[in-house]
Structures are given as C-alpha cells and as structure tokens.
Amino acid sequence: MALTAPVASHNPSGAFERLLTIMDDLRTNCPWDKKQTLESLRHLTIEETYELSDAILAADMTEIKKELGDIMLHMVFYARIASETKDFDITDVLNSICDKLINRHPHIYSDTHVNDEADVKRNWEQIKLKEGNKSVLGGVPASLPALVKASRIQEKARGVGFDWENKDQVWDKVEEELQEFKDEFNTADETLIDKEKAEGEFGDLLFSLINYARFININPEDALEKTNRKFIKRFQYLEEKAREHGKNLHDMNLAEMDVFWEEAKKV
C-alpha cells in the first residue's frame, strides 16, 4: 500500500520536517535506502560536493539549489543511520553546530571585542585549541586535495599570527623558490637531474605561489579550475575545427593547431 507523501511547506521548519519524514519513509520501506551505511554514502557525498562546486563556478543558481538539496539529504541520511545505533540523531547534530557557533563567536554572544575579520579568525583558532585541539593544523583533513590543503594550512597558520607581513615579502619568496627550482632543474641543457630534489623544490614553489594568491585574495583552487575549463573549451574547439576540415589532430603539426587555437581564444 502506497504511503501518503508529505505535502510541501513554505516555512523552514515545516520543510525540514517534511524531509525528515521522507527520510524515515525511505529508510523503512525502500530496499536501496535500507541497505546504505555511513561508509557506502561517503563517496556519494564527495561526488555531490563536487557537483555543488561545479554549479557555483558556473553561477547556475538553479543547479546550486538542487545540489544543496542533495547535500542536505545526505546530512539527514547520516543522522538517521546514527540514530538507529543510538549514537546521535539530527537534533544532536543541529544543537552541536549551534553550540559550536555560539562558543566560537564570543564577539557576538559575549563581550569579546574584535576589530576586523583577522581578529575573528585568530579568536576562532585560539578557541579551538582551548577545546582540546593539540595543533592549529589538526583540523585540516588529511585527505584534502593538495592544493586546497596548502591553502587551509596557510590560513590556519595566519590565524595565530604566523604569516608574512606584506605581499612583497611573499613575492620575494616566490622568486626565491623559482630560482631554486631552476637551479635543480636546469632547463638550459639535458643534464640528468635529481628528481626527488627537483620535486621538493617544485612543491616549495607551488606552496609559495598559493601563499601569494592568498595575499591578493585569489582562491588558487578556483583559479586553476577556471583555467582548466578554459583550456578544455579551447581544446574542444580545436578538435571540432579539425574535424570540420577533415583532419585528425595526430596528423597535424603544432603550427596548424595553433591557427585554430588562436581562433578559440576569440570565441
């Protein structure tokens, strides 16, 4: 016998209750939903997060709304599974984040004074240490992509005052690291290099560039992803034009490809 679907609500609490009711119905009656575990949902949640990221970069508000709904479903799903083992439920989750936000915003909910955003971040990290974190960097997930992780490491170090004073110093560091990399990887000849040392210098160079991006308010992950998308668009234009002219990229030389590549820049 079919269940009666809960009707839409036009207020936040009613809409959230509707989602919780649907989650209960699915967990009880749907063969797929009944089988899911915290572990089986994990990779799907990661995928949904990347889909939200794509929608944000595309500035597609309809897709952003949709992907936020998907992620909200996952949060409710995790809480429902945990409630079955009596570890926690959605109420515990919501109260936990509310308590955390209140505690970490003493300039809002207490008498702490802040002058700017930097003070807020500094207080945030100091409060985390008082809560039991052994290291300022302890909250950086080990599985983050390296580019994102470098940004988070630098932001957290800055939160306790470990940072350069101005962007000129950071750019000097970029140039220093670039020179060290060039010394390790001599582009002027074909001398065999120490790959491990060159890799280390290249990593230092990337880290310093990410640091400089932070100083000029550029998100390096977003910047690189936009460049990736730009390259893909131009390369696919190149492929399309080659097909239109009855050519195969494998049979074209670089000069021939460059003609279409320059056209792609104008599209």
Rank of each mutant, 00 (worst) to 15 (best):
219 N>R: 05
260 F>I: 10
72 M>A: 11
22 I>M: 01
247 K>A: 11
210 I>Y: 03
227 T>E: 15
201 E>D: 11
76 V>F: 02
101 L>V: 05
199 E>L: 13
96 S>I: 09
142 A>Q: 15
163 D>M: 08
191 T>L: 10
166 N>K: 12
118 A>K: 01
85 T>W: 06
132 G>E: 09
91 T>E: 13
236 Q>M: 11
109 Y>V: 07
115 N>G: 04
246 G>E: 07
130 K>D: 08
5 A>Y: 03
32 W>K: 14
155 E>V: 04
182 K>H: 06
9 S>Y: 00
7 V>R: 00
10 H>W: 05
233 K>N: 13
71 I>C: 05
108 I>K: 05
44 L>C: 04
223 A>Y: 14
35 K>Y: 12
158 R>P: 06
100 K>C: 15
166 N>A: 08
140 V>I: 10
68 L>F: 10
182 K>A: 03
150 A>M: 07
192 L>K: 15
201 E>M: 07
1 M>E: 13
170 V>K: 01
132 G>L: 06
43 H>N: 13
16 F>S: 04
24 D>A: 04
48 E>K: 02
151 S>E: 05
8 A>V: 02
84 E>Y: 09
97 I>R: 14
190 E>N: 14
199 E>Y: 12
66 K>S: 15
82 A>H: 09
170 V>Q: 05
184 E>T: 03
18 R>L: 01
43 H>A: 12
170 V>P: 00
72 M>L: 08
144 L>M: 14
241 K>A: 08
10 H>K: 02
29 N>L: 03
194 D>E: 15
193 I>V: 15
143 S>Q: 15
44 L>T: 13
69 G>E: 06
21 T>S: 02
96 S>K: 13
61 M>V: 14
165 E>W: 02
127 I>S: 07
206 L>M: 15
28 T>K: 12
224 L>D: 10
187 T>V: 12
52 L>G: 06
197 K>L: 11
211 N>L: 07
235 F>N: 11
160 V>M: 06
12 P>R: 02
100 K>F: 14
137 L>I: 10
11 N>W: 04
179 Q>W: 01
154 Q>T: 08
233 K>P: 01
32 W>I: 09
50 Y>P: 01
64 I>P: 05
184 E>Y: 04
120 V>Y: 02
83 S>V: 05
265 K>H: 12
80 R>F: 05
178 L>C: 07
